[in-house]
Structure formats: C-alpha cells, structure tokens
C-alpha cells in the first residue's frame, strides 16, 4: 500500500531532545514570547514541513513532560501522576489486536503487521478532558479507517467497539473492580470511526508512545472528551448495536455514548463552557471551550438533525 507520506527523519534529528523534553522550563529561562514562537516554529516547522497534516492545529504544543506526567489512565490509579509512576510495569511487547465481529477479515493483528503499510502522520490535536482541562498534543498515528478497511467491515456493521488490555499483575488499578468495570471499553459509530480525524496513535513527539499515554496503540478522537480515546487497545469489534462503554456504564447520566465536546451541554456537576489549558501556568486565563473541540467543520455533519443535549 502506498503511503501518503513517508518521513524517515525523527524529531530528534532536528530539535534536540533536551529542548522539547521540557520546553516550558526553557521558555521560562529564556523568558520571552518571541523566543517561544521561534522555538515552536523550529519544533513543528523544520521537522514536519512536508508532513504537516491539514488537521493539525498550530497552537502552542504542551511540552513532553506535561503530556507524559499528567494523565488519566485509571488502570494505573486515579491520581494524575499514577500512570507515569506505574505504567512502566506494563509489558507492551509483543502486542497484538484482535479484530473481530462483523468483518470479513477477522483475526489477530500483530503490532508490526498493523504498522506495516500504515501511513504515519503527525497530528497535532487539541485534547479536551471531560474534567475541563485541555492540552495540545503532537500525536504520531494513522487513520483508524485504514485499519478498518483492511479488516473489511460487513455492510451491516454500524458500530466499532474497543477494549483495553486487562492485566492486573501489571496494571495495578485493575486490582480494584470498585472503581470501573474492566476491561475499559469504548465505542464509536462506524461513520465516526471512519472520519479522517479519528486516528490510532502509536507515537508522541516523534517517539513511541510512553506507556502512560496508552502504549503501544491507542485511539485519538479529538472532537470528543478524552475518555473516548481509549488506550492500550487489544480488541476492536464491529457490531450492529451500540456497544457498552465504560464511563457510560459507570454513570449513564453523566457520560453519554457520544460525549462530543460541547460547551453548551454541561456535565451535571460542572460547567463545560470553559477549560484550563494545562501547562499555561498559574495565572493563565480560562479558555472558551469550542464546539466539537474546534473540529466542527469536519464532524458537525455526523450529527445533523440530532439533539446534542439528549445525545450527550
């Protein structure tokens, strides 16, 4: 299969790792907006000039440290720092994903097999958490549609269900069944899954995904709240019914199947109108949350005629 873009140059060849590892500190010591802009330009422009996806935002990136130290991944604990602390216990090699259900080519796809022939792109996406904070993250990944097409969904398939690995020996949060029901489950409508914005990410800042970010392969659906972007996927099942999803099962009144980012539909307990951009410091202003997290032009059509306040 022909890749749309092939880039054999890593970020590390362009921007010294020490620079992007903690850009926030660097900016602080440099202390100026002009310098901030030029470094951001170096990090994005020089490396991915040819590969920039039209879907990438040019907003300032969160630095690697923020993205890898502030995570919700309850398989490793509920604290934001728990995943960074404990996800190292997870073995991600070998890894394979079972694709089953209503597909013509069901089977166990190895990680290497999944990556071979996948057109890797850098997608700089906003991530909006249901807890009203957000980040800007340079994912490396490929369109989920590419993998689904390989599996060939049957015409009657309507939904895609995803499951995270269950391995309590290595995922200490799973030793408690009290918190959430494992495996963590997520789902999309097939047309949402086939939308070009929906990617399977395998990398971050040009490198392999750190475990706390959902290694080795995770979903990224940028117009939905972060919990929809399921991590460390081991199963993808095509169905003709709306699959059960973890947070919806935990609190159906608070987390819907769709969970599209929507500033007009509040969480029952808190507002979704604004958000705090992680990494912007103690005195940063809250930002207005955008409809569909700013991806309205690409995805609004998926929900035409639907009442988004009942289909939250």
């Amino acid at each position: 299969m022909k890749s749309r873009f092939e880039n054999d140059m890593g970020y590390s060849e362009v921007t010294p790792k020490s620079v992007w590892l903690n850009r926030r500190d660097l900016l602080k010591s440099a202390g100026g907006a002009t310098i901030a802009a030029s470094i951001a330009g170096l990090a994005n422009g020089a490396t991915f000039e040819a590969s920039k996806s039209i879907y990438s935002t040019d907003e300032e990136l969160n630095d690697f440290e923020d993205i890898t130290s502030y995570n919700n991944f309850y398989e490793f604990g509920t604290g934001k720092g728990d995943p960074a602390r404990y996800a190292g216990e997870l073995t991600t090699e070998p890894w394979s994903v079972v694709i089953d259900g209503m597909v013509e080519n069901p089977g166990t796809y190895s990680y290497e097999d999944i990556l071979s022939g996948a057109a890797l792109e850098e997608r700089i996406y906003r991530l909006r958490c249901v807890e009203a904070w957000s980040m800007v993250i340079p994912w490396i990944g490929f369109e989920l549609g590419h993998l689904l097409k390989r599996a060939v969904p049957e015409p009657s398939a309507k939904f895609v269900a995803f499951e995270t690995l269950v391995r309590p020996e290595e995922m200490r949060g799973q030793r408690s069944r009290f918190l959430l029901e494992w495996p963590y489950r997520e789902g999309l409508r097939l047309d949402e899954a086939m939308n070009p914005l929906t990617i399977l990410a395998v990398g971050l800042y040009g490198e392999e995904l750190p475990n706390q970010n959902g290694a080795p392969i995770r979903l990224v659906v940028p117009w939905k709240y972060g919990f929809k972007s399921i991590k460390s996927i081991v199963r993808i099942t095509l169905t003709d019914f709306q699959p059960p999803t973890t947070w919806n099962m935990q609190a159906p009144g608070e987390y819907g199947f769709y969970s599209n980012v929507n500033p007009l539909v509040d969480h029952p307990r808190w507002s979704q109108a604004t958000e705090r951009r992680v990494g912007s410091g103690l005195f940063a202003r809250r930002m207005e949350t955008q409809m569909f997290n700013g991806y309205e032009e690409y995805v609004a059509g998926l929900y035409e005629g639907m009442d988004l306040s009942t289909n939250y």
Binding site: E65, V278, A284
Partner: peptide
Amino acid sequence: LALQDRLGADPLQAL
C-alpha cells in the same frame, strides 16, 4: 511551589 511552576503540569489544580 506553584509560583515557581514546580507543581507539575497543572499547578493551579494542584494548589
């Protein structure tokens, strides 16, 4: 620590 930006990614929430 929050003023020094030493409370992690989200110092406001940590504080």
